Simulated scan of single mutants.
Amino acid sequence: MTRQTYLIHTFTMAADFDEDRIRLNTVDPAGQYQALYLTRRLADRFIPLLAQRAEKAVAGPIPSELVLDIEQEKLRMERDSNPQAPVETVPDARPWLCKTIHMGDREEGGVQLTFTDDVLIDAYLILDEQSLRATLDVFLISYRALEWGEQAFPEWVTARGSALVVERGTLN
């Protein structure tokens, strides 16, 4: 069989409870749909590398954790105020299992991710710095939905939503 290559234009990440996996519903620039599964084991190994790329992109006199905290919160606020329609796969889009993720820098800037089944399919995703951090955020949302531990994520990604709820009337 011929190896298929596919450019991911946009995707929606979803928690698939039946499979206990993360599902990426994707669409290419021509409107072709695919769905791919990521196991927790693969995601746990991949997320720290993705976070390192995001951290590497932040350089300057201000501590990177502070910059990343602020940038991540800005990204979340923008997403909350401008939600995007999710990518829905067509019913006959047969999901495939991603076995390997390759990550490489692009000469034009950003990073290219290649999701592959190691046999027939390569799906490419190109991320700039902001999209890279947004991808980390949607991974976190999926992890929380699946009730998976968050050890793979740095604190600047997990910080939102971890503050204790203060009961009304307890503040002075």
Rank of each mutant, 00 (worst) to 15 (best):
N25E: 07
R40N: 04
F153K: 08
L132V: 13
A30T: 14
R41W: 01
I47M: 00
V58W: 05
F139I: 12
C98K: 03
Y124G: 09
S131G: 15
Q34S: 04
M13E: 00
L49Y: 10
V58C: 10
R94L: 12
V90S: 04
F17T: 14
R94I: 15
T100D: 06
E88H: 12
L132D: 04
D28W: 11
L125Y: 10
E71W: 06
Q4A: 10
R21K: 15
L50G: 01
N25T: 07
R144N: 08
E19V: 08
A51M: 06
C98M: 01
Q151W: 04
A93W: 03
A35S: 11
W148M: 08
P95W: 07
M1Q: 05
A43C: 07
M1N: 10
A134D: 09
P63A: 07
F46Y: 01
Y124W: 11
V58S: 06
F46R: 02
V166Y: 02
G31C: 05
V166C: 02
L36S: 03
R133V: 15
T5N: 12
Y33C: 15
F17S: 14
S142L: 03
T114F: 03
E108K: 11
F17H: 12
D28P: 14
D117I: 10
D69A: 05
V119Y: 01
I62C: 03
R53G: 11
G149S: 14
D80L: 15
N82R: 12
Q130P: 05
T2L: 10
P95Q: 06
Q130V: 15
R94Y: 06
Q34N: 07
I22Q: 05
D80A: 15
L97D: 09
Q130G: 08
L127P: 13
F153E: 08
C98L: 03
Q52L: 10
H9R: 12
S131K: 14
S64I: 03
R40V: 09
E19A: 14
L132Y: 00
D69I: 06
Q130D: 12
T39C: 00
E73P: 08
Q34Y: 02
E129F: 13
W96C: 03
M103Q: 10
F153P: 05
G31Y: 00
L136F: 10
R21E: 04
I101L: 08
A152I: 05
L146V: 09
S81E: 13
S81G: 04
N172Q: 10
A163I: 13
R23Y: 00
Q112H: 01
D28L: 12
M13Y: 02
M103H: 06
L146I: 11
R41T: 12
R23L: 12
V157P: 06
R160Q: 15
M77Q: 13
A54D: 09
A35N: 02
E167D: 10
E129D: 15
Q112D: 01
Y6G: 01
P48Y: 00
F153T: 14
R106Q: 13
R133T: 14
N25P: 07
L38Y: 00
I47G: 00
H102Q: 09
M103R: 06
V67H: 02
I70M: 11
R160V: 15
R76I: 14
L66S: 11
I8Y: 01
R53D: 07
D137C: 02
Y143E: 01
T5V: 10
M1T: 09
G104H: 08
W96R: 03
A30H: 01
E150A: 14
T100L: 09
D28T: 15
L120S: 09
D18L: 05
P91R: 06
A134L: 06
L7R: 07
T2F: 05
W148F: 06
Q32P: 02
